[in-house]
Design a protein around this nucleic acid. Sequence first.
DNA 1: GTGGGTAATTGGGTGATCCAATTCCATCGG
DNA 2: CCGATGGAATTGGATCACCCAATTACCCAC
Lengths: 232, 232
Amino acid sequence: MTIKKIKYHRVYEDVIEQIENLILEGNLAPGDVLPTERELAQAFGISRGTLREAFRILEREGLIETRPGGGRFLSKNLNKAEDKSRIIENIERATIIELLEAREIFETGIVELAAKRATEQDILEIETALEKWGKIDSDSDDPTSPDQAFHLSIAKATHNVVLVNLIDLHMDLLQKTLNKTVDIPGRKDEVYKEHFNILQAIKEKDPSKAREAILYHLKQVKQNILSTTNGR
Amino acid sequence: MTIKKIKYHRVYEDVIEQIENLILEGNLAPGDVLPTERELAQAFGISRGTLREAFRILEREGLIETRPGGGRFLSKNLNKAEDKSRIIENIERATIIELLEAREIFETGIVELAAKRATEQDILEIETALEKWGKIDSDSDDPTSPDQAFHLSIAKATHNVVLVNLIDLHMDLLQKTLNKTVDIPGRKDEVYKEHFNILQAIKEKDPSKAREAILYHLKQVKQNILSTTNGR
DNA sequence: GTGGGTAATTGGGTGATCCAATTCCATCGG
DNA sequence: CCGATGGAATTGGATCACCCAATTACCCAC
């Protein structure tokens, strides 16, 4: 039997959940005013202070708005507000396979764009990132952040903030798993070579060559990950 | 002179900002224990209750962790915690051009995958979504959500949660702008036709045909948007 | 040392209390 | 009759004193 962490129960979290449920069940409509702090506190059987902690969170998430002296009411765009944080949470729960698959799709697009658009300055930054990767020795504590930096520098060459941030997010989520693959003997040099080829294609402004280079790289990464994990 | 909205000043927001600054300036390192509630409250010159409201937020954002009876300490991965919410904010600030460009990249990948993987059930759901789009009349108040549903149903056919959520996010962000393009005379029927072609290609399990169909559709969408806006 | 018990510390939560902004309504003036 | 006005009640913002439960630190017996 596995050992479960005992999670401390916070009252305010219950309250948040209950209020969220009320909203989702449609018992409360956008724009509706909520009962007063004092009423709700009594109804929930908790103190005003605790209730307000819950409201602070709901406020931050955009579910409710507060008019001091006036009252609290549901904000109009309740669904979207919550969706956005949920989207990231959903992505976090994805399997590595799914992440890699998505990454393959948009990183091929990124390198193609980068090959078309990279300025001399962009290329310089990619080179710098590549060199940092070359310098790390395997005892270094965090070998993936240079890798992140390399892929990020390429994304930046597209001059598209959406693509930059998507890669950013993905590298973050993959980081823990990627760490393990660097330990594979000889893998570090291979990665350097693969990165080098990508850079080369971008320098030559050859989108299809860049595409092939990143596809090969991602294929290797995938293989290495699968050999060190069980796919989650 | 323009009239500025008077923003109500919440004490707890100040506290959050100050603590965040302390962290960013490096005066506090990951893992460090924070002073006790009582000490900090006194230092800030506020009550414990207010201070705790601030901590609730910081806790939710993953910056700090709390051990009841133990104390509060900075969580190890402070940078990432904040990054994640920032990533979405960054994407929200992107121009429409950038959004469309990114979407082109990964929606082509999505339809290709969908064409390979769609089950009969998936195709049924895409058809249903398409029919709903056919039924709306232009006076309807929200013509884009059927459009969203269509593209979302295709993403679902990839059986990859990452791709589903990425499309979800993008459609959300594009929604406001897309609304306008439907008003263009005759555009509604064209969109139906374009959607139909995409579905057809998926039914035929023909990835490259699906790719062409979505590329054509996105090209049209882009043109229509550019004709109704000025690119932001 | 090790284990266990005890006291101090710390966050969790409550309730009474005051303040400031908002809302509501009765009142007054035209 | 109707709109402006000026309190009074209401409501969220914040504080303070207080108690509880979990954690921690420490000392002592073995």
